[in-house]
Amino acid sequence: MQQISDILSFHRADRSDLIPILHEVQSRLGYIPPEAMQAAADHVGMSASEVYGVATFYSAFKFKPVGRHCVKACRGTACHVKGSEKILAEIEKALGIKDGDTSADGEYSLETVACLGSCALAPVLVVDERVYGRVTPARVKSILRGER
């Protein structure tokens, strides 16, 4: 809660600050808990339902705690035509989780994103902030282990 009020203290009590607030909450906590939405609502003068309606509109926002490492598989067109489906299947197999889930040990979360904009290097994978291009199913395991 302290973190949330810290974040709020840097933002105007204006609705246009809502999405920036949600971004910051998520970057600090990894997800957006209900208390944060309520606090943000009170801060910008909206109801919690409205905040919930806004937050759930955007696929970047998550409402469940995430793993220590975030794996993002691109499902953009270039990646798709270059076989991203197989990459995703391979990750799912390696981590034992499906798109949108977090592994039981809390190590990994897996999500797909619309397009990472590195299409020339498709298929592309992002682990935490690091982008991996020209991924093959065979490379998935080593990438997840943090190797190139």
Binding site: I19, P20, V44, M46, V54, F61, A114
Partner: peptide, 26 residues
Amino acid sequence: IVMGAGAFVCGEETAMMNSIMGRRGT
């Protein structure tokens, strides 16, 4: 700078303006 939050439709100008104003990006 205002950051989007993962909504393709926000490329549409009226949706983008809603998003900038802290609304659902419709």
